[in-house]
Every structure is written in structure tokens, then in C-alpha cells.
Amino acid sequence: MTGIKVKVLSGRTLRQGVGKEAGKNSERYRTSVSICEMNSEDITSLSIKAGENVKVTSAHGSVVLKSVSSNQLTKPGMIFIPYGLYANQLFNETTGGSGMPTFKGEPAVVESAIEEPVKTLEELITEI
């Protein structure tokens, strides 16, 4: 099965903002940052239903996330992952002399990963 090419955006969401204040160990935080917001056409083209897991792979890493259909992504080809450890698996360490990594616009491939579980934060940390 083939994936689709996308650009990954990461950013603040209100749920993530609330989740981090509720505590980094809280379920609220974990579920707020382990999602992949997608355009509904992209979800359809992966032959999955919203809520099923996807695997996102960039040149720098790979991460499994729960897909969410988002009406903020009005065009296919872009996915959005809230700031956090999950999103960061995909990003490059270089800053191009700016001090700032590129947290938005990283090319990646999204595939269906219905059988693969979303890792816990502990698991991700252990892998570091």
C-alpha cells in the first residue's frame, strides 16, 4: 500500500495548550499532541476512516498518530500535528544559521497504519 506525499505543519492548538497546563503526564495532554490532522480527501485516499492510525515518515524520523479530519486543512497535501514530542520526531536538527529548526513545512509521507499503536510518551522518550 502506498502513502501520500504531504507537508507537515506543527503548531499550537487550544487543546494542546490546555493539555500542557493540565500536566505533561495527563491523558489530556497525551491525546492532544498525538494526533494527525488531515484533509478529508487525504483520509479517503488512504482508505481509512478518521480516527484510525496513520504513520508519518520524513527524512528525519517516523511516528504513528491518530488521524483526525480537520476542516482547517481545506486543501489536500498538508497535515497538522500539534507541538510536542510526536510532531518533533519528523523534524530536522539544522537551522540554516537562524537558530530555529523548520517546524513547519517538512516533506513527509503519510500511510495507513491501522494496526500500529500510537506510542506512549514514555516509549518515545526511551527511544531517544
Partner: peptide, 16 residues
Amino acid sequence: SDPIAHFPPAISKRLI
């Protein structure tokens, strides 16, 4: 601050 949650993993690895 929580750099481990917000830095690219290659950086976090060196940080640790």
C-alpha cells in the same frame, strides 16, 4: 522548560 518535548530528536539525544 521542556526541550525534550520540543526539540528535534537528534538534538534531544545529544542533550541527554
